[in-house]
Write a protein that binds this DNA or RNA. Structure first.
Length: 254
DNA sequence: AATGCGACCAACCGCCTATCC
DNA sequence: TGGATAGGCGGTTGGTCGCAT
């Protein structure tokens, strides 16, 4: 995901696991997993299947807790896991689904092929929180939620559409964003010819799905993904755009 | 070259729920 | 029915890296 480190990160190579005695005086390992531990776990699960994690930990002789084995498998070793940068579509989907479901990371992750809840959560807590801070907003505030839904998301949708057009791909991606559930009306957003957001009040009787069909992701990269360098929604251009929408002027000191 | 700082992310923690006995 | 246990999930921590100074 991040540009700083990616791929098969076995941190134990740099800083090994630590032995801890638990309350039963059994030694358990904590910290980064060793490659050897990984292969033991993978071998076991390929033979016996997932589940019964405490049993797995005991049977394999891994001095890990069942929980630790489960986490390592689900977040790292499981087949089909994709690491690397989120694509624009994935980032947009995260914003959309977070609006719908809140911090239901595992539920959101289910909708993103090969991504883990941990990755989605980390994305939200690093990127989104940071941008909220830069915009002087509380990430949980209605103000920030609105600016994401009514300004950033339609803008991204348009960017994705143009990109799809460019690459001659079908791109029936996103319809206008919808307001927070706390509001009695639903705000519909579109953009004027200058790219300025137009926020309109809507009747709340229209269903969410009617107004904003789900983003389609069939076309996204299945073979490793996250390779679209530069597909960062929080780029300078978009952040500046958000600032202008929020504060109505070019204020890069905010 | 050394240092400080922010970003990133793997792994752990603690709570909640489901299941079993 | 209720206690024990395992699994699942969201929140948090801490190590590492890259960049700025």
């Amino acid at each position: 995901m991040g540009s700083k480190e990616s791929g098969n990160r076995t941190t134990a190579a740099r800083h090994g696991p630590e032995e801890i005695s638990n309350k039963d005086d059994k030694v358990i390992m904590k910290g980064p997993w060793l490659e050897e531990e990984d292969s033991i776990l993978v071998d076991y699960i390929q033979t016996h299947g997932e589940g019964h994690w405490d049993f797995v930990a005991r049977c394999t002789g891994l001095r890990r807790t069942g929980k630790s084995c489960r986490l390592r498998w689900l977040n790292y070793l499981r087949p089909g896991i994709r690491h690397g940068n989120f694509t624009l579509e994935e980032q947009l989907k995260i914003l959309e689904l977070h609006f719908l479901w809140g911090n239901r990371w595992s539920k959101i992750a289910e909708s993103l092929n090969g991504r883990t809840d941990n990755e989605v959560k980390n994305y939200w807590r690093t990127r989104v929180h940071r941008q909220a801070k830069l915009l002087n907003c509380d990430v949980n505030s209605k103000e920030f939620g609105d600016i994401i839904r009514f300004v950033l998301m339609p803008r991204l949708a348009e960017q994705i559409r143009s990109k799809s057009r460019e690459s001659s791909q079908a791109a029936d991606l996103v319809s206008p964003a919808i307001s927070s559930s706390s509001s009695s009306n639903i705000n519909l957003v579109s953009m004027d010819s200058n790219g300025k957001a137009l926020i309109m009040k809507r009747d709340h009787t229209n269903s969410l799905q009617d107004q904003w069909p789900s983003i389609q992701h069939d076309h996204h990269n299945e073979d490793g993904g996250g390779d679209q360098v530069g597909d960062e929604i929080w780029n300078d251009e978009n952040v500046e755009f958000l600032r202008q929408q929020l504060f109505g002027h070019d204020d890069s000191d905010v």
